[in-house]
């Protein structure tokens, strides 16, 4: 560096500590000071426009406002806040409008058109995923598989109690379904129920006691138990009744797949025969809009591969 003696003597601030400790004065540019004042002015303008100061249990709300539409469709104007801004953005922001336009396109398309168009499918799935999480996931699980086998059918597998075509899925969502099987605990003896359970399991390939199976077979097709009314002669069930297909590997009421031993499987089936089934899917017509039902129909159809 250059020889310090060449520099002009540097001014000090005039402060002195401990007798001789002094501070050089390197003046800041004056505009620097003005930018500081500008930030002060900015802060005051900000206080006037936006929520700022706590006052007791409330706060100064500021003059700026946000207008959005509340859940009842009424226009609401509140003091400016990020929550209201967010709601407004979701309703009338640029992206929201784009989404609305595309939604109209999907709503105007036929199911066949949607199913054949990868773009519309991708759009439907991302929107319907949210709808599903809000309305359906409480019972059917977030991914379409309920937490445990028993009360709610798994929508991911390829077994459809009420039919897996687009039309039938839409009808299920729109009108709801009542899944009913009478309880046989009082009608049939325990031995009969045991025999029926053995027969039912034999339908899906379980290696059960042949004698009990034969007895269950005749009971199944008898007027006394009358199982075949709903489950049909072959045990494959009827979509119109929502009766389960007993010949496949999917179990929606008795958790057969989750049972460790054959005896336990038989027990679980027996329990269902004894107690019957009463399940109810609510009707969503009126609670969800037609477009929303359409999106969900395509989504649920896609979850299990559809029919």
């Amino acid at each position: 560096m250059a020889d310090q003696s060449q520099h002009k003597a540097v001014q000090t601030t005039g402060h002195a500590w401990d007798g001789d400790l002094q501070e050089f004065n390197n003046p800041l540019p004056r505009w620097w000071l003005w930018t500081f004042y500008a930030t002060v002015v900015f802060a005051i303008v900000y206080w006037i426009l936006y929520p700022a100061w706590p006052v007791g249990k409330t706060f100064t709300k500021g003059l700026a406002t946000t207008t959005f539409v509340d859940a009842d469709g009424k226009e609401v104007t509140t003091h400016w806040n990020t929550r209201a801004e967010f709601i407004r953005d979701m309703q009338s922001g640029e992206e929201a409008l784009k989404q609305k336009a595309y939604l109209e396109k999907v709503a105007g398309a036929s199911y066949e058109e949607i199913l054949n168009d990868p773009d519309m499918m991708a759009f439907t799935q991302s929107l319907a995923k949210v709808l599903f999480a809000d309305n359906c996931a409480a019972c059917h699980g977030l991914g379409g598989t309920p937490a445990e086998v028993g009360n709610f059918p798994n929508l991911r597998d390829d077994a459809w109690l009420w039919g897996g075509s687009i039309e039938r899925i839409e009808q299920t969502i729109r009108k709801g379904r009542l899944g009913y099987m009478p309880s046989f605990g009082k009608v049939l003896s325990d031995e009969d129920i045991e025999a029926l359970a053995n027969y039912v399991l034999s339908l899906s390939g379980h290696d059960v006691d042949k004698g009990l199976m034969a007895r269950g077979d005749s009971l199944f097709h008898s007027e006394q138990a009358g199982c075949y009314y709903c489950h049909t002669n072959s045990g494959k069930g009827l979509y119109s009744q929502g009766s389960a297909n007993l010949t496949d590997q999917v179990w929606t009421v008795a958790d057969v797949n989750g049972a460790p031993t054959l005896a336990e499987k038989i027990e679980r089936v027996k329990s269902v025969i004894r107690n019957g089934v009463q399940r109810r899917m609510p009707a969503w017509e009126g609670r969800l809009s037609d477009e929303e039902i359409k999106l969900l129909t395509v989504y649920v159809h896609g979850l299990g591969g559809g029919q």
Binding site: L142, T145, A159, Q249, V250
Partner: peptide, 12 residues
Amino acid sequence: VRQPLFTRLSDG
């Protein structure tokens, strides 16, 4: 997809 991790189909 991790929710659910797997699904059992009707044909096993």
